[in-house]
């Protein structure tokens, strides 16, 4: 009797796990489709960059002003402010090279908005913070290094 139920249990369990695997695969597909447009996956930086840039060229610009402290603690959110003098900015993307999920956020701004955004980030390790501004034909880029102290007792 016990073996019977156990057998049934195993049968059910395997059936269930098969089903969950299927659904997981479905979810994965969905997530991949989602990632194609906006890439919030734990992937290396260069792969994410390809997805963000969509084949447009990148130009370094000194007209982007990133306001972020150069040192930070591990567990504390870091405020960042991005401002620019450039015109016709369609979107602002913020990336942190060493985070598990490098792309922090993409803001698609309509012409009714100033090219300005301020938010708070999580930083896991000492890393470069990249800002990419999308205009009609090219991306403008700027970066700044932030040192993260592991212990949390300041620098």
């Amino acid at each position: 009797m016990i073996t019977n139920t156990r057998r049934e249990f195993i049968k059910k369990a395997t059936a269930l796990s098969g089903y969950s695997m299927l659904s997981a695969a479905g979810l994965l597909n969905l997530r991949l489709a989602f990632a194609e447009a906006i890439n919030f996956e734990a992937l290396p930086m260069d792969l994410i960059l390809q997805g963000v840039l969509k084949g447009k060229p990148v130009l370094d610009s000194d007209k982007i002003h990133i306001k972020i402290s150069s040192s930070a603690d591990n567990k504390i959110p870091v405020p960042i402010t991005v401002e620019t003098d450039l015109k016709d900015i369609k979107s602002i993307s913020i990336l942190v090279e060493q985070n598990t999920v490098p792309l922090v956020a993409t803001f698609e701004l309509s012409p009714a908005l100033e090219p300005f955004v301020s938010t708070r980030l999580k930083l896991m390790r000492t890393s470069f913070v990249f800002v990419l501004l999308e205009s009609n034909k090219i991306f403008y880029a700027a970066k700044q290094k932030v040192t993260v102290s592991e212990s949390g007792c300041g620098a």
Partner: peptide, 28 residues
Amino acid sequence: TRNDQIIITSYMGTSISKDPFFIFMLNG
């Protein structure tokens, strides 16, 4: 949205801090 017109669409991942805070500047 402002008066039913979308002005900001933003996509974000897990690197944004807990209790997300944003500042935007509206022209006009």
